[in-house]
């Protein structure tokens, strides 16, 4: 079997050309390609892991932005009935909702009067 020596850079198989390349017919070519593919596989796995982490981070950040967006939108639609800053009203309204107090998301407070 004739051994083919590498003469230049164009004889070194690259990752880009793998798909269109024929199956290597020599042991040396196969070993070279195998080593290159294993490296490429390891690189892609690292990439995938990084992208999955990035995706998780981005999803978390997106959720935060959406919550903030809802909060700011609520400030815009709440009537400034008492003349206090809208952000104060929004905070009050949100805290009343979370505390389950008399406000219940209304723009007023009720006290009981017996007659």
């Amino acid at each position: 079997m004739k051994i083919k020596h590498t003469k230049g850079m164009r004889d070194i198989p690259t990752i880009q050309g793998l798909n269109s390349r024929s199956v290597p017919d020599t042991r040396q070519q196969a070993a070279t390609e195998l080593a290159r593919l294993e490296h490429e596989k390891a690189r892609l796995e690292r990439n995938l892991k990084m992208w999955i982490n990035n995706q998780k981070k981005t999803e978390g950040r997106l959720r935060q932005v959406e919550e903030r967006l809802a909060l700011v939108q609520q400030v815009l639609v709440l009537p400034a009935a008492d003349g206090s800053p809208k952000c104060v009203q929004a905070r009050r309204s949100l805290s009343e909702e979370s505390n389950g107090s008399e406000g219940k998301g209304q723009g007023w407070r009720e006290i009981t009067l017996e007659y």
Binding site: A81, D82, V88, R109, E110, I111, T112, L113, E114, Y115
Partner: peptide, 25 residues
């Protein structure tokens, strides 16, 4: 008339929730 409720929080308007006394005739 008897008024019962929490201490007034400054800001939000206060409305009355009226109801008869237990001995209302």
């Amino acid at each position: 008339m008897a008024v019962a409720g929490r201490p007034i929080i400054k800001g939000a308007p206060v409305a009355l929730s009226v109801r008869p006394r237990p001995n209302f005739v």
